[in-house]
Amino acid sequence: MKTNVRRIALKSEVLSLLLIVLLCIAFSIANPAFFHIINILDLLKVCSYPTIFACGVMIVLISGGLDMSFMWIGMFSAYSTSKMLSLLQVGQGIVMPLPVIFAISTCIGALLGSFNALLVSKFRLPVFIATLSSANIFMGVMFQFIGSEYIFPAQMPVRMIEFSKTLLFTTQSADGTPVGLHASVLVAAGVCLVVHFIMRYTLVGRSVYCIGGDEAAAERVGFSRTRTRLFIFMLAGAIAGLAGIVGVSNIQVANPYDFQNRELTVTAAVVIGGTRITGGSGSVIGVVLGVILTNIISQNLVLIGVQPEYSKFVFGILVLFAATVQGLQTKLRNRK
């Protein structure tokens, strides 16, 4: 019985949840407005596309590598999709339905992901180096051949603008503003479910864990390294492509510089969520909690009265705290 409690308490998901509860209590003491339903709905919306990105990062991390290219894959896919469809819309009056828009961006992402796979499998480059260079290549190609100017709301594909305004389970707030769960949260939930299923219940999903745990052993068991890597990077790329188009839709403007410098926030969320940085272990539930945890911190500093010039500092300290607690917990678990 005692060991059972101990085992549950030491699960990283449980710990993340505890940290989230702790933060929520602390923040709502600092400002009761924190627990307002609108704040919670906003938080979910803001978490939506980082959560999708994080699922992809998790898959690559489980396989034993740190992906540095996912934000650029996301932006490349989303920006080129938006630009192409914006030109079609303005020039020819063609309005693409939303699923097609999402599918195009997802496919571009998968294609870019296969380039990563090529670098890692054929040229035997470490994932970190391969994706760091591919990120720069994607960025350069986008700026040189696709464009670098913003696409404004007036030129954006109308279905994307509509998507950004789609709320589910709407009610009206006191002043008549529609309040509801943003559609992007549903997309994120869908991605999480699919990835969870693939990683947990399919052979190819298990092979990702296997290759991350011990590559040589995985090959001896009969998993093809090349094919597994191709699967990993194409899936991660596709997820990044979808995350990108959701993120761009949410803010109604395609700004090719927008996702820059956000790689590490998402990666931090994935690691805080219990994905082992050396590979072989990690879960979607943990990742979701990790993203929520980091976003609760970063999205509420003004609300709890942290002065803007200290916000980065406070964010850093809180993330460090969360990561330390997770690290200690892993240590404890392994000692047992």
């Binding site: 906003d42 700004n255 509420n300 500093l301 003004v302 609300l303 010039e309």
Partner: peptide
């Protein structure tokens, strides 16, 4: 309040400030 010359970031900061 610093918004970072970044569309996604300023959107999030503005949402937060309007609630705060």
């Amino acid at each position: 309040i610093e918004t970072g010359n970044n569309a996604a970031n300023s959107y999030e900061k503005a949402k937060e400030a309007l609630k705060a």
